[in-house]
Amino acid sequence: MSGISKDVAQPASGRPMVRAEGVHKSFGTAHILKGIDLEVNPREVFCLIGPSGSGKSTFLRCINHLEKISAGRLWVDGSLVGYRQSGDKLYELKEKEVATQRRDIGMVFQRFNLFPHMTALENVMEAPVQVKGESKAVARERAGRLLSRVGLGDRTGHYPAQLSGGQQQRVAIARALAMEPKLMLFDEPTSALDPELVGEVLDVMRSLAEDGMTMIVVTHEMGFAREVGDSLVFMDDGVVVEAGHPREVLTNPQHDRTKSFLSKVL
């Protein structure tokens, strides 16, 4: 067990960090998720792979309620995402309650989505100050520490447009960590990067995994999944086709669909 950094919140022990039961999602007539069942344990690095359009990003976005699920149940750290159950009735959560749930779930996007009108430091300070009501001094101190941790201690005053893609994505990771989340979602974090910048982002994610952060990673980086991942799920057409330890699934896939996908990407 490696040392747990101050930035990684201690997960509640025992229950899974994320549990999905028969999760469905439709956009109009398009049925994207067709019954997803899975569990992500605390401190686990959980990789989601699959062809584009297979629903893996949609599922990730359901976990912090950026998308509403159409059927099934989804829990994060024991509480229903976006709803409150009382008896057998389900109540939609108010906007503020949803926002409170999201505080504990960090998300990193494919397109970084940094705030372009703020410097790197201000990007990282924004949520702790605005959402948690933290003092600026405390937030600034932590933001500086987090930026140093992702190797950008000398770039705090830069605006996103003045940073490379890899640097921007590392700022985005620091921004998510500033809320001290108990779960981190990565939505294809390296897909928009030049090949030579992928490594620096994966290095940060690897160190985060070593610190015991629970991570769900949608990725096409099979090397990362094999080295860092604890479990791997192959999704296709809205269902989980195959799940298991990354090394087993990647080296010895059981399903034809998995085999044909892996033969193209490996």
Binding site: L66, A99, E126, V131, A172, A176
Partner: peptide, 15 residues
């Protein structure tokens, strides 16, 4: 994406 990033950080619509 700016709205999504803000929401993912726990910011409300008004913020």
């Amino acid at each position: 994406g700016q709205t999504e990033a803000s929401h993912a950080l726990g910011m409300t619509q008004g913020k």
